[in-house]
């Protein structure tokens, strides 16, 4: 058993002059729920297709379960895909759709029957075997697509924005169902979405992508609390950006002055030589403001409580957005004073 379920090493994909995927390296663990998150056109679907085998990399290597995939076609890779438009075979019944992969693997008829019916039970569609896809609702079709993929017990399940076509209520319900399913089945899920709430809700780790590059990989908390750059900070949550100047850098911390009146002390990871001067904030590297803070989730207290000027977090479920109050009442105007933290 290899260390990682899926590994991408320096993978690039060019379509003529267009660079869809730019030197992406990822390591996805066994049994992990991993999401590729980003805006339209960022390369997340192409990355998924590179893993599935529908595209071959222009550069770099794709490994599944430790095996280099090279030019292996999709029908020889131990992965299955749930497509965005479900791609159910319209000329076959639900049963035949779900059984298709097993048939291709020459599984016996009795076993096929057993496994197909079990798969349909698992996605809560018992009794639908003899219907045709056209007779099903969107949500039902989506679950058939899921069953069709899972029945083959792949090492990795690839999901390409599977909930996109569903209404909000159903989508929320399916997010929880998928998460529970993944827990039960224990298969690695690689999930592509442009919906950050979806990714933050379901994933163990997320890779945020833009324009073909992976900008940050981390847990939802890490991405949320410590966005690696401006794009990530902007994309995730609702963010206020404060522009300031880095006055000083010490070990693990930078002193940033905003507008000459507010001093923030921002924890920074180890960096290449700092650049002084006017910089825009965004958290993480180069100082500055913070993203909105979700209340009600069990997040660790912010590192070195000092630098934040967050308004208090309240209890409550769901996301609760805070406006950063920089009122004179809460902070001293003297720029030498440290901003007081409020909780």
């Amino acid at each position: 058993m290899a260390k990682y379920a899926v590994e991408l090493k320096g993978v690039s994909k060019h379509f003529g002059p267009v660079v869809a995927v730019d030197t992406v390296s990822l390591s996805i663990g066994d049994g992990e729920f991993f999401s590729l998150l980003g805006p339209s056109g960022c390369g997340k679907t192409t990355t998924l297709r590179l893993i599935a085998g529908f595209e071959l990399p222009t550069e770099g290597d794709v490994y599944i379960d430790g095996q280099l995939q090279g030019e292996t076609p999709p029908y020889r890779r131990p992965v299955n895909t749930v497509f965005q438009n479900y791609a159910l075979f319209p000329h076959m019944t639900v049963f035949q759709n779900v059984a298709f992969g097993l048939e291709m693997q020459k599984v016996s008829k009795e076993e096929i029957r057993q496994r197909v019916l079990a798969a349909l039970e698992m996605v809560q569609l018992p009794g639908m075997e003899n219907r045709k896809p056209a007779q099903l609702s969107g949500g039902q079709q989506q679950r058939v697509a899921l069953a069709r993929a899972l029945v083959n017990h792949p090492k990795v399940l690839l999901l390409d924005e599977p909930l996109g076509a569903l209404d909000l209520k159903l989508r929320k319900a399916m997010q929880l169902e998928l998460k529970a399913l993944q827990h039960r089945v224990g298969i690695t899920f690689i999930y592509v979405t442009h919906d950050q709430e979806e990714a933050l809700t379901m994933s163990e780790r997320i890779a945020v992508m833009d324009r073909g590059q992976v900008l940050q990989v981390g847990t939802p908390e890490e991405i949320y609390e410590q966005p690696a750059d401006r794009f990530v900070a902007d994309f995730i949550g609702e963010t206020n950006f404060l522009e300031g100047q880095v006055q000083e850098r010490q070990a693990g911390e930078a002193e940033v002055v905003v507008d000459g009146v507010l001093t923030l002390y921002v924890p920074t990871p180890p960096l290449p030589p700092p650049t002084l001067g006017r910089m825009k904030g965004g958290g993480g590297n180069e100082a500055g403001g913070y993203c909105s803070h979700p209340a009600g989730e069990n997040l660790p207290p912010p590192p070195a409580a000092r630098p934040t000027s967050r308004a208090g977090s309240g209890a409550g479920s769901g996301l609760h957005r805070h406006r950063h109050a920089l009122s004179g009442a809460t902070h001293r105007q003297d720029h030498r004073d440290r901003a007081s933290a409020e909780r």
Partner: peptide
């Protein structure tokens, strides 16, 4: 819909079988 052909290949059908089972019908 070409995604149906990709789905067939994803489900372990080689080119011949995805032709016979999906494209042709």
């Amino acid at each position: 819909d070409y995604s149906l052909v990709e789905a067939a290949q994803d489900l372990y059908a080689n080119r011949l079988r995805s032709f016979l089972r999906v494209i042709l019908p």
